[in-house]
Design a protein around this nucleic acid. Structure first.
Lengths: 261, 261
DNA sequence: TTGCTCAACTTGTTGGTACAAGCTGACATC
DNA sequence: GATGTCAGCTTGTACCAACAAGTTGAGCAA
């Protein structure tokens, strides 16, 4: 301890040491770390210094803390979403694709809906090739898996589309799915433009998704096109620690043939 | 100030107030925030409390701090990567796709190479359908744009492939591009399986990519397939604040026709 | 047994102090 | 003019103290 008196600040040495022990398995996923007081003794540091080190690991998403309980090693259980198969163009699924996906994974889906008539934000308007501030219908969806907040989804529809498909503006779910409903009105989406980004959540997002510090969000923006023009823009905000997106490009028959583990 | 004595802790009030002012534009991108001492006076709080609030914004990636200089509002300048067009299967580009992409964007690319003979990590072995710990060639690439670290790329090739295409194990760049080189040896990749995830960087990643606290990384895992089997697995680690990935699915002629802004 | 209280733990918040270390510009020196 | 020094700003690290607030389990009371 005295020998390798590295130049690193003490709080970082604490963080590094704990990180190594977590990686090594000394503290497995879900297990509790020693209390701040115990760590302070062990590292011969003040409680504040130990807190700084623990704070580092928290902001890196490695551990969580809760008042009265202590620090816990975060456990990861990620959910994969196949974005190329999702809402498949050739074989649209009945009802909600998310619900079926989650059910197939043996989990329990749950979601709340909200429909608003609002105006186009600038970034959405640009994607839908309409004017910023023009009328828009926003269908908002808050999704849970096993009662854990999973993602939020906000879809903007331009005004001209809502006039052709008025049920978009009505509250409540569209039973057959909006993609199918639109197709039945002659609006057939034949192409998607997907954008994927990541950042730390805003306080609002952190509240909605119940994500603690150190967990980024995954932003998935999908713009749907007919043969003529863009018709909708969906922004899905995922908890970054629980989700992964998959795309399949080209011919993957070699993979899917012998998909047995 | 006294009227709305919300239950929120003071350091969060500080963070929220500053966040609002940054969003509103009071402090624009690149501009400096008042010093901790000034903020302490303004919010009637101790320097430690102000530091806690500023620390929140730092860990959310909204601002950065540097010793002696102060706090600065982070500016975002994102680089878009079209993953469906990248390494296009039908029209493979000459040389390195990354370099041409960056040059086309009017930026200056720069990269360093490293080739290692190593063993297969478990996750990669699973994707390449080979045994964990079997021999592998790792081609590692560290990429910069305008001398700013941009991404790291690590490609693993299975041993059987290296025996067919021995130049993979030689140090230095493969002039015509590895995809073309492989094709010239009868290894033609006709399908990709892409996985996209996000998380906070490990200390190593943070050092390599020079990312401060509060910036997540974007992980792009691409497994390339021939008609028979997987042949390579590339993991690209991006700075999450500087990159966005795009995918095009289906028929997007409606978008690309009148792509003029 | 059941239910309640409370002590003893935990982390969270806020204040204080001191000194280290990076940056800048004014100023003296060459 | 060019150069180097240094005072005075900034944030970084580290410690101490006190109290608030959430959690748990022991133990008492109905």
């Amino acid at each position: 301890m005295m020998g390798s008196m590295s130049k690193q600040p003490k709080y970082q040495q604490v963080a590094d040491a704990l990180r190594r022990e977590i990686d090594k398995g000394t503290y497995g996923p879900g297990s509790r770390l020693p209390s701040e007081a115990e760590l302070a003794v062990r590292f011969e540091a003040s409680r504040n210094t130990v807190r700084s080190g623990l704070g580092l690991l928290v902001s890196q998403g490695l551990i969580t803390s809760s008042q009265g309980l202590g620090y816990e090693v975060r456990k990861h259980e990620i959910f994969e979403l196949n974005a190329s198969r999702f809402e498949n163009l050739n074989f649209p699924q009945n009802g909600d694709a998310y619900s079926t996906d989650v059910t197939n994974a043996g989990r329990r889906p749950h979601q709340t809906f909200r429909v608003e008539v609002t105006t186009m934000p600038e970034d959405i308007a640009q994607r839908l090739r309409v004017e910023t501030g023009s009328r828009a219908v926003l269908r908002f969806c808050h999704r849970f898996v096993d009662d854990v907040p999973w993602s939020t989804q906000a879809t903007h529809y331009p005004d001209w589309l809502v006039r052709e498909a008025p049920r978009l503006a009505e509250p409540g779910d569209v039973a057959e799915g909006t993609t199918r409903y639109l197709a039945s009105h002659g609006i057939e989406q034949i192409g998607y433009a997907d954008e994927i980004a990541t950042r730390m959540p805003t306080p609002d997002e952190a509240r909605l998704l119940e994500i603690g510090p150190g967990v980024p969000v995954l932003l998935w923006t999908r713009t749907g096109y007919t043969a003529e023009r863009p018709v909708r823009c969906t922004i899905t905000t995922f908890r970054g620690d629980l989700n992964r997106m998959n795309y399949e490009i080209g011919d993957l028959s070699a993979r899917n043939e012998n998909d047995a583990q």
